[in-house]
Amino acid sequence: MIVIPMAGRSQRFYDAGYAVPKFMLDLNGKSVFAHAVESFRTLFDQTAFLFILPPGEEAAAFVRAECQALGLKEVTLVTLDRPTAGQAETVELGLDSVAAPDATPLTIFNIDTFRPGFTLPDGLESAEGWLEVFRGTGANWSYVRPGPGPEPLVVETAEKRPISDLCCTGLYHFARADRFRQALAAERAAPQAAELYVAPIYNHLIGSGAQIAYRLIERQEVIFCGTPAEYEDLQTRTHKGG
Rank of each mutant, 00 (worst) to 15 (best):
G123T: 12
T113M: 04
P101Q: 07
P55F: 01
P54A: 11
E89K: 06
L77R: 05
E57M: 14
Q68W: 02
V63I: 14
E125N: 04
A60T: 12
L106I: 04
V98L: 13
A85S: 11
T79C: 14
A69V: 09
E57S: 11
L50T: 10
L120Q: 09
S126V: 08
F51C: 08
A99H: 15
E92C: 08
R64W: 08
L106Y: 02
L124E: 00
G71K: 13
E125L: 02
E89V: 10
R115D: 00
E57L: 07
T76D: 15
T119A: 12
S126H: 15
A65L: 06
P105M: 10
G56C: 08
S97F: 07
N110L: 06
R64P: 01
A100W: 00
T104W: 06
E74T: 08
L50V: 09
L120S: 08
P54D: 01
T113F: 00
E66S: 13
T107Y: 00
V63D: 04
R115I: 05
S97N: 13
A103N: 15
E57D: 15
L95Y: 04
V98A: 09
A88C: 12
A127H: 06
A88S: 14
D112V: 00
P83N: 13
V75Y: 11
V75R: 06
E125G: 05
N110S: 14
L53Q: 03
E66V: 07
V98N: 03
T47M: 05
L50Q: 10
K73N: 10
A127R: 02
F118M: 01
L53C: 10
L124V: 07
